[in-house]
């Protein structure tokens, strides 16, 4: 009887723990603000990278600003909504869901942007169904631009700067202006 009573008190606790783990496990980290909120103009580019360096995760807003600067050499937009609309136009993001500006950016979204910037054609699946977060992430890992990661993970500010630098190096190599 005593064992049964003990079991009956443990089972709800385990269920509660599993439920709480399941609920928080799917949520993304949200920061109070993004670096681009303060440092958004082209002239503030160096300050933006400097502040991003110390951020524990890169947010959607920061990621879009950095990737747009990489793609075009400048980011003319002023708000997150404008950047999001531009990203949708470039097919960096699918669907109508709008991720939060200060929510941590998923590697998958950044990988799709990188595939677009680098004009990666990919393998059979990508050629048949177009670039997707999962397959673009795998392509970047294959190209040695990303280490082993999955599309749902996030990057720290320092990692994002490194990713952007690696994409820029690859662009320079492909255009023939890379280092020896």
């Amino acid at each position: 009887m005593r064992g049964l009573a003990m079991r009956s008190s443990v089972v709800p606790l385990v269920i509660l723990l599993l439920a709480s783990a399941g609920m928080t496990g799917c949520a993304r980290t949200v920061l109070d603000s993004s670096a681009v909120d303060e440092w958004s103009g082209d002239e503030a580019e160096l300050e933006y990278w400097e502040h991003l360096e110390s951020q524990r995760v890169v947010t959607n807003h920061d990621a879009l600003h950095g990737l747009l600067m990489l793609a075009d050499g400048a980011d003319p937009h002023e708000t997150y909504e404008q950047r999001l609309a531009d990203a949708r136009e470039r097919a960096w993001m699918a669907g109508e869901a709008a991720p939060g500006a200060n929510e941590s950016a998923a590697i998958g979204m950044m990988a799709v942007a990188a595939c677009d910037i680098l004009s990666v054609k990919g393998g059979l699946t990508m050629r048949l169904f177009g670039p997707s977060p999962r397959y673009c992430t795998r392509e970047l890992i294959f190209m040695d631009i990303l280490p082993q990661r999955t599309e749902h993970q996030s990057l720290s500010g320092l990692e994002f700067i490194d990713l952007v630098g690696r994409i820029e190096d690859r662009l320079a190599e492909e255009s023939g202006s890379g280092k020896e």
Binding site: L146, P147, L155, S156, G157, L158, E159, F160, I161, D162, L163, G165, R166, K179, E180
Partner: peptide
Amino acid sequence: FAVKWGGLEGVQIEALASNV
């Protein structure tokens, strides 16, 4: 030589861009 340091893979040593 060239030294690259990034958040993703740490330090990397590469050939010097001597001609540049």
